[in-house]
Design a protein around this nucleic acid. Structure first.
Lengths: 127, 127
DNA sequence: TATCATAGCGTTCAATTGAACGCATTTTGC
DNA sequence: GCAAAATGCGTTCAATTGAACGCTATGATA
């Protein structure tokens, strides 16, 4: 139950990259960031350090470099983040979020198809 | 273009109430907050003041009390907030968010129906 | 009309966040 | 084998955020 401290915006951004890469050094994360982001090496390093301190990541030394890995399942974190948002934005209801995503943002035809597929499958899990 | 400063978590929570009520005094917002939240009158006042300073709300004096109203369309703000989250969490893609909402959170049968309805209607807006 | 509660206004204060240094220690390319 | 580049580690620093005071004005009530 003991919740780890909430993720700050920038931390989330950086954590996501580690999740995607599975394991990453500071430099690798830096390079995986969108180039417009233009963060300093030291800054990324700081965020990673904080993520470790907060319990989201763990590290493993590999020669000179320190490799960051996820400590909690990403899906779990995603869930917490979205729960929090849902709570503050829509009082916890997810339907209004769907509503918003569909209405105010729009979907391509193929996205609609995929979405229908998801619903079908969820309702009747395929063999 | 000139973006107003991002909403802090607590500010969002408070703004949402003003949106819901349409117009509200400090006390009304305080009372509309979930009771577990247990914020001080002064604290709510501070958040409202900040929301005004950031350009999200405007006020209108009504006798003794100051009434807070929305200055930007709530849907617009919701959009910004979600854009931001989507960006940091899924690189801007909305499908993974749907995926998460459906898979990791689950929906009731009736929610699934409503969702299907939304998709149908979006694709073929009813007369 | 005196009084009391309510609201405003300005401030404060610690914690967190966004961003980046500097120095020491590796590595590695030459 | 040595200079240049890369890393780690500890720090810093201003802005923002979460939370709440204290003092003043004002309006409603007894």
């Amino acid at each position: 139950m003991s919740k780890r401290p909430a993720l700050a915006r920038s931390e989330l951004e950086v954590a996501r990259i580690v999740w995607r890469l599975g394991r990453a050094s500071v430099r690798q994360v830096l390079e995986a960031l969108p180039s417009e982001r233009n963060l300093d090496f030291k800054t990324v390093q700081t965020y990673l350090r904080r993520l470790e301190a907060k319990g989201y990541l763990r590290t493993k030394r590999e020669g000179r470099a320190k490799i960051y890995l996820s400590r909690v399942r990403p899906a779990q974190v995603v869930r917490e983040v979205i729960d929090d948002l849902l709570q503050r934005l829509f009082g916890g209801e997810s339907i209004p979020l769907f509503q918003h995503l569909i209405h105010d943002r729009g979907l391509t035809a193929s996205e609609i198809d995929r979405l229908r597929g998801m619903l079908d499958e969820w309702e009747d899990p395929k063999s």
